[in-house]
């Protein structure tokens, strides 16, 4: 019997998404690569009721940052210099997904050992706070779903993540 591996294309359990790396969530509770953007939610340093909704578009690197009440972020002030929320978002995304995956998604040319932030061209982009915030609420809603004891045979295709090695 051969012990050679089976081709990736012919494996039912071929891994597609690399396991998420654990990170602290207090500052940036939510990060996702979705709808052609790196987007997420950044806690306000001063007001526990307030969060900032920040995003960077893939390709153009268009920046957007607003509060959950849809006020523009003063740090970004309509310009193309990343505010501290966007900087935190990008840094936490690199922790969570690894620099390479974030760079590939944003189409950013990161030098060896460099950070994604320094490779962004940055321009301003339309306000996406409403979409991103509802995505965050959908994300949180998973924690409210009841547990299930019914058979889920398709989970044989989804083994629990191995350690990030």
């Amino acid at each position: 019997m051969t012990t050679d591996g089976v081709a990736y294309e012919r494996r039912s359990a071929a891994p597609v998404v690399a396991p998420t790396r654990p990170r602290k969530l207090a500052k940036v509770p939510f990060v996702e690569l979705a709808e052609g953007r790196l987007q997420g939610v950044v806690s306000s340093g001063s007001d526990i009721e307030r969060v900032y909704v920040s995003s960077v578009t893939a390709g153009e690197h268009g920046l957007s940052c607003n509060t959950n009440n849809n006020r523009p972020c003063g740090g970004l002030s309509g310009g193309s210099w990343a505010c501290k929320h966007i900087q935190a978002l990008v840094a936490e995304a690199e922790l969570q997904y690894g620099t390479e995956r974030v760079a590939r998604y944003l189409k950013a040319e990161v030098a060896d050992g460099g950070s994604v932030m320094s490779a962004l061209r940055t321009t301003s982009a339309p306000n996406r706070a409403a979409e991103v915030f509802s995505s965050f609420l959908r994300h949180l809603a998973y924690l409210e779903l009841p547990a299930s004891t019914d058979p889920l045979p398709e989970l044989q295709w989804f083994p629990a993540a191995g350690a990030v090695r």
């Binding site: 654990p22 779903l145 299930s148 004891t149 350690a163």
Partner: peptide, 23 residues
């Protein structure tokens, strides 16, 4: 086989995922 499953999000993974099965 007997199973228990919980919904979670991507940032909950590794040993702490067991916390979602506290019930």
């Amino acid at each position: 086989r007997t199973s228990v499953a919980a919904a979670k999000v991507d940032t909950i993974t590794g040993p702490s995922a067991w916390r979602m099965l506290a019930g």
